[in-house]
Write a protein that binds this DNA or RNA. Structure first.
Lengths: 140, 140
DNA sequence: TATGCTGTATTAGGTAGCTAGTGCAGTCAT
DNA sequence: ATGACTGCACTAGCTACCTAATACAGCATA
């Protein structure tokens, strides 16, 4: 898992995003154990508390659950809620963009055009199928 | 001009957004003087440096120009560049949203649908015509 | 029951960013 | 030239936030 300690976005948020994506796309399956706090901390060369903070936020969002002495696991409906959270986040960005456009009195047409152009410039990559094409465990 | 000192978004950014909007929508006309740093600072009950920081950023963006001893004025092509900056900002948000959707493997169709729904929920308000319908000077 | 794993809690250090205080410098009118 | 306005520059304090250090508590297995 790639983490940039010099990024302006905090490490714990980078971890959240990464795990969130893995759950949303089915790389991590329900009730499957995630890397332990210490293990991941060791891999990323950060303090365990930083990893814990990420996991706690993911637990608060209902994507994982933590059991003392046992580990961290993907919630049974983790994938569903992860996708739902993603949609929510997407809509939030779209809303911000639209509001910005509104306050500059950009026409409806202009907004649609800007969106379509942006969408066109960011083609979706060729899709593998779930985790079968990915690594089997927390490797990278 | 409304400014919330308790907001998580910095005061100087709130000022930037506000002025930016006024220029983009033509409320402030080219070469028209903006409120002086001290005057605006007095009105908003903040330190002059905070206002200055906002104005400096606006100058860097090419929306205004500052003349020592004279004041701050709207750049001649201010409205154009303001609208262009707005479009850029809008596209930035759209990009973020799209990227988020991509990383969750949301379908193209889903993205479009989310956008359209969001657009529908945020109707553009009935439009007045430029500044004639607004206040004539920096009043609020 | 002892060892080694797991998550949890509390505290403290460090840093980046925002805001404020104060003084300098240019322009114009009287 | 003096006063009153303008923008500019430097410094310092403060606050919020992230990260780290360290110690505590539960679970499983030999």
């Amino acid at each position: 898992m790639p983490v940039d300690p010099h990024s302006h976005v905090p490490i714990y948020e980078q971890i959240i995003e990464h795990i969130h994506g893995r759950i949303a796309t089915g790389v991590y399956q329900p009730d499957e154990p995630l890397p332990s706090i210490r293990a991941l901390a060791l891999e990323l060369l950060v303090n365990p508390n930083t990893v814990q903070r990420a996991y706690q936020e993911l637990e608060r969002q209902g994507l994982v659950y933590m059991r003392k002495g046992l580990g961290v696991f993907v919630a049974s409906n983790g994938r569903t809620t992860a996708r739902s959270k993603s949609e929510e986040a997407v809509r939030e960005r779209f809303s911000q963009g639209i509001d910005l456009g509104r306050s500059a009195r950009l026409a409806e047409q202009t907004l649609r055009s800007l969106f379509n152009r942006t969408l066109r410039e960011r083609p979706s990559p060729p899709q593998g199928h779930d985790r079968s094409s990915s690594d089997k465990r927390a490797s990278s």
